[in-house]
Design a protein around this nucleic acid. Structure first.
Lengths: 195, 195
DNA sequence: TACTTTCTCCTACACTGGTAGACAAAACCA
DNA sequence: TGGTTTTGTCTACCAGTGTAGGAGAAAGTA
């Protein structure tokens, strides 16, 4: 019997390395040779864990979407409080999240010519928007949220602000600061509580 | 004397073609051979008009930024009216502008590893934000804009909404519709007129 | 018509990418 | 200890890429 390797762990390590490469040098830096070298292997070693490069990329994409979910800690929260937590923790407010934004930017582009990635993103959006809708509804039930603006518009506004913040924190971070992001969110949340 | 060619016209044609290729297949589709073929030439014909591929890409980038400026028709407008025009016409509200968003998405990514492109974008942002600031100031002078929210925050909100809309119209256009974009802007502009 | 300059095409070159396959190394079981 | 199967290395291949250079075509002038 041969050497025993935890394949899932290996795959996870490879995705870690791919993530870092994309973070630092974009998708162009994530070549098979680079990924293998950064993971401490020679060129052909990855093939036992991923059939092709596309599979590595896809796994890294899934990691990015999962990570956005993991940031959110909603233990027991509901309504307006949950909404606040969801919004704050999905904005690019620290170095790690800004890196995640870079990965996201990469995959937005890839998903425009890759149906599988695109479908994954749509599913992610559906679930994220679903959460936002739910907390808005709860907030209205609790009487905390009383604005006349329809929920659909509110949800979309959060999504646009989030996507915009992810882009701008990368591309013009000297203008779109973290402090401004917090102000945007406070302004948004404040509006919810007024008719 | 040889055949007379308008070099500027040629360069413009080449940029047109490159634009279309990026629009349809992303930056990967814009290879020298593809660009030449789509422009009706053979491989080596481009070299008389652009020294290298990077120069074609850069020229296409400049075109993208110029296009965003050209959309805006501010004949004689000032203050709140000018602000409205500036906001509306820079959102991805039709097919052509959505295509421009795709080009923008490509260049956001490129500018992360290309100082020259990055500087160009920062300059563009500076001028765009400057315009927004100016119209906000005028609007306050005219008494149309009375909100207590500071201008810096308002400017950044427009920028984030715009960037987010550009991304989302490409990646999840079925959620972030053009109708919603108009609603976001109306909501934003309406807020300016209230304390 | 002949000449000169520009433009265009074609081929080639150096390089990089993903992928496949042969072979060596390692590790566990009998 | 020996054998078997996985794991890892190395080399090679093929398809692309940007770029350079040379040969020919085109076009205007003398």
């Amino acid at each position: 019997m041969p050497k025993i390797i935890d394949h899932d762990q290996r795959r996870s390590d490879i995705v870690d390395v791919t993530w870092d490469l994309i973070t630092q040098g974009g998708i162009e830096a994530a070549t098979m040779r680079e990924i293998a070298a950064a993971a401490g292997f020679a060129n052909g070693a990855l093939k036992h864990y991923f059939p092709s490069k596309d599979d590595i990329i896809e796994a890294t994409y899934v990691r990015a979407l999962d990570m956005m979910r993991e940031y959110v800690k909603l233990d027991g929260l509901r309504g307006l409080a949950a909404l606040r937590e969801l919004c704050v923790s999905s904005m690019p407010i620290d170095a790690e999240r800004i890196n995640a934004g870079r990965v996201l930017l990469t995959f937005w582009q890839l998903s425009l010519s890759n149906r599988k990635l695109h479908d994954k993103y749509l599913e992610h959006m559906r679930s994220w928007r679903g959460l936002l809708h739910r907390y808005l509804t709860e907030g209205r039930e609790d009487g905390d949220i009383v604005t006349a603006t329809p929920d659909e518009q509110l949800v979309d506004e959060v999504v646009l602000l989030n996507a915009g913040a992810n882009v701008m924190s990368l591309v013009s971070g000297e203008f779109s600061t973290v402090a401004l992001q917090h102000r945007h969110l406070e302004s948004f949340l404040d509006r919810l509580t007024r008719p």
